[in-house]
Design a protein around this nucleic acid. Structure first.
Length: 259
DNA sequence: ATGGTAGCCCTGCTA
């Protein structure tokens, strides 16, 4: 089973490339972030034509998350639950569904903008709600994958230059502690377990030729509970998808599981 | 030079 995640930075602008990539990479499950669509505009038919069922959660032209699957999509659910105050309640940033026996969660963690700021505080609060939601609804022995754009580089080796990010979001101790909390609960950074090196980035700013200069960050993660993580046989960032005409600023991250 | 680009969809906001 092949699971992938991709922040597409507008599905409207990127549909052709996503279709091409699906035919090329043939994931069983693809989690999308930043579709920038309302549900009524989600191109479910285009994915259906390629053999994918899909669910989407989006209010408007900002954020928005989706899950595509060739192995079934059961019990779709979005958000943290009706009794939980979402610090980004106006946004669509979390969608779960059961695909091929795995509870798959597509997340688009708030960016945080600046440190300090109200947005940064709400990013950290959003992480707390995510951890509480996991703790309340799942156990570490359940097959769960939480994947998407976390907008955090978990370690220094996950950024091209630590000096360039002093005082910025994505690398602060509280943000990294939020990832650690998820790991402490039982999620494994599957990609990092496979590969130890640097330069394993999944995101490069559009500006300044950052991609071609190698100035990236690893912020798109595939976190999995041990029953899933132990099945991982292979993982890759498909950097070719960051090249060519009208690329997203993120590349897809792909993880293969043995049956 | 407090920069740069891309996508939202109209002009400034978000990333």
């Amino acid at each position: 089973m092949r699971i992938a995640t991709w922040n597409v930075n507008s599905l409207k602008a990127r549909l052709e490339r996503v279709e091409e990539w699906l035919e090329y990479a043939r994931p069983d499950v693809l989690c999308l972030q930043e579709t920038k669509l309302a549900d009524k505009n989600f191109p479910a038919l285009a994915f259906s034509a390629l053999g994918y069922e899909s669910v989407h959660f989006g209010y408007n032209q900002w954020n928005g998350v989706a899950i595509l699957s060739k192995v079934g999509i059961e019990d779709p659910a979005n958000g943290f639950g009706k009794d939980v105050e979402d610090p980004y309640a106006e946004d669509a940033r979390m969608l779960a569904a059961t695909c091929g026996g795995i509870r798959v969660v597509s997340v688009y963690v708030p960016n945080g903008r600046e440190v300090p700021s109200e947005f940064y505080d709400r990013k950290l609060a959003w992480f707390d709600r995510l951890a509480e939601w996991l703790e309340a609804h799942h156990g570490a022995k359940d097959p769960v994958v939480v994947t998407g754009d976390f907008n955090v580089a978990p370690e220094d080796r996950d950024v091209w230059s630590t000096a360039a990010f002093v005082g910025s979001t994505h690398v602060t101790e509280p943000e990294r502690a939020a990832i650690k909390r998820l790991e402490h609960w039982g999620l494994v950074d599957t990609f990092r377990r496979m590969y130890d090196g640097e330069n394993l980035y999944s995101y490069w700013d559009y500006r300044g030729g950052d991609f071609h200069q190698g100035r990236g960050m690893r912020i798109d993660l595939v976190l999995a509970t041990e029953p899933v993580a132990e099945r991982v046989t292979w993982a890759i960032v498909d950097r070719n998808a960051r090249k060519g005409k009208q690329p997203s600023d993120h590349a897809p991250v792909v993880v293969d599981l043995r049956d």
